[in-house]
Amino acid sequence: MIEITNLSKNYGTKKALQNLNLKIEPGKIFGFLGHNGAGKSTTIKTLVSIHNPTSGTVTVDGLDLAEHRQEIKRKIAYVPDTPDIFLQLSATEYWDLLVAAYQLDRDAVQSRLQKLITLFDMNFHVDETLSSFSHGMRQKAILIGALMTDPDIWILDEPMQGLDPQAAFDLKKLMQDHAQKGKTVIFSTHNLDTAEQLCDELAILKKGQLIYNGSVQDLLNQHENKTLEQVYLEMAGRSDSKIMDELEGGGHE
């Protein structure tokens, strides 16, 4: 279980995250929703040790993240929000790096790796450098790496971005299977259909603050006869409601 307590993160004077409290349980798919800049990636980057929190704590299975980084990192696979990392390496070299990082046995993961490569249709590209890949191919290469190491906790920042429909479908299936095995899947998305389809539990962020935490079903029950899209837009909605009309109506005088 992951417990986030009073977590805040400032970038300089900008408050990107304020006093976040969350419990993320294994066996469920946990989704982050929120407008651009709401703080989803900031939360995720704190969980995966990219950022140190300004204040607050994170514990994973009872261990304090600040004190047991190495141990905890080995339990986590992370897919970043932009796949532009390690561009100089070939896909295989990148996976080799991960094998070494997680101290796995190359031969032991080989068959899983091969299946993932085939699943994501990347057989012809394994020796090409990531820099020569299209956006979606980079995303696939990084997903394959994360899924290959297969630790208990998956943390995926907008993982479907750029994937073709087949790959997105397969990924969703893999995420469900992983949660079904009693493990943890955390992801962020802008796609409300995906959220509705996948998430057992939701956290909605708005300007660095948590405005909803609970199951999708509860949320829909609270607002009868509304779709998730309608509910979400109401909650996270914009500050100036007339702006759209102005833009389309009077804006062209």
Partner: peptide, 12 residues
């Protein structure tokens, strides 16, 4: 900038 990329990985 690669330091950032190593951070989430369990390298010592």
């Amino acid at each position: 900038k690669d330091l950032q990329d190593y951070l989430p990985l369990p390298f010592s």
